[in-house]
Design a protein around this nucleic acid. Sequence first.
DNA 1: CCAGTATCCTGCAGGC
DNA 2: TGCCTGCAGGATACTG
Length: 290
Amino acid sequence: MGSLAVIGWPHFLEDGGGVPELPEVESVRRLLVGAVLNRPILEVHCGAQQLRRALDPDRLRTELVGARFAAVDREAKYLLMRLEGRDGAVLVHLGMTGRLLVVERERPTQPHTHIVVGLEGGVDLRYVDVRRFGFFCWSDTPAAEPSLLKLGLDPLADGFEDRFVLQARSRGVSIKSLLMDQGVIGGVGNIYASEALWRSRVDPRRRAGQLSARRLKSLAEAVRAVLLAAIEGGGSTIKDFVLPDGDSGGFVKLLKVYGHAGEPCVRCGELLRKIRQAGRSTFYCSKCQR
DNA sequence: CCAGTATCCTGCAGGC
DNA sequence: TGCCTGCAGGATACTG
């Protein structure tokens, strides 16, 4: 084991007001697999502050202490930390500012740390969340969790593109809102919705059902491509993040429109716009997105 | 069916 | 300088 591991979502988003979407959660999952599996759990501490989902501290402690995490799965933006031979699991959602850290026990606890799970080997798994829109809780029956059952298509699964076309064809919502609907696609949030629309040259204001099957399929391909690129980019960014003294050189700017209102479109030079849709900001190019 | 708004929450930036 | 306001948005609930 290395001397220090720090896990979070990639910091390349921070200047754009970053939020963990599917790629960030997947990056965290991969690092958790390497950092917390099969270590006996020694202790659990819960803060007093309420997270988005209610948590029973005694229950969490009873379930975890003495057990080991056997697997970490991801469904959309949710993480499931499973224990060997048990149905129950820790269910985590990072909300907007949630982070999972794996740090040496002697490292000082940073502000807004809500859950600390002490593992054998001198490391803690810590849940930190400034705004507390996320949660870290015990679920007896993760397979029956309503929020997981509601999730729509997995954008990384085989056949996603064709299924998305079928779902989108009959819908009157704006295509941007449709992309963000977790019941349609699980894991796409505000940032990657804008990015995928730009990549496939689709105007975010268009109604989903107005778009041809061909364009919808191209958009679905863009969704997948944007997410996969971010997972790859996130991996390398996190590697920089893990090294406390390493500088984050070699970092590639992945976001082409999000957070770039007023700057020229890198494809056509038109100044990028920012509008509001369903209460969320959308970034797009009014010239090359139609 | 869909749009819009409010709710939770904190930190930060801009205006005056 | 400091206070106030708005904004950031994931999920959910609610109204029009």
